[in-house]
């Protein structure tokens, strides 16, 4: 049995609950870390292009989940546990 899919809704809910900023821009999604997430106050940012919706039902591609993990240290399991 494969891993459960992570949909955009899971990601949005998880990050909004933690003070991240979610922006929508022409179908693209932008996740911006809160200032307190880094000691220097800079905010890491991940952009998810609208081509992700080519995947069935707004399921995020593994590449996007890897990018989120590299940028924010958040795993798919953490995101799914929230949802």
């Amino acid at each position: 049995m494969g891993q459960p899919n992570v949909k955009w809704g899971h990601v949005e809910k998880f990050f909004l609950a933690r003070g991240y900023e979610i922006r929508h821009s022409g179908g693209d999604k932008i996740i911006v870390a809160p200032k307190h997430a880094s000691p220097t106050g800079t905010r890491r940012t991940v952009l998810i292009g609208h081509n992700y919706s080519d995947h069935k039902g707004e399921v995020l591609a593994p590449g996007h989940l890897s990018a989120i993990k590299r940028a924010f240290g958040v795993t798919r399991e953490q995101i799914l546990a929230e949802g």
Partner: peptide, 15 residues
């Protein structure tokens, strides 16, 4: 470290 996806290389690069 941003990435674009697409069903073709050009669509991925465009994104």
């Amino acid at each position: 470290d941003q990435l674009g996806l697409g069903l073709t290389p050009t669509k991925a690069l465009a994104e």
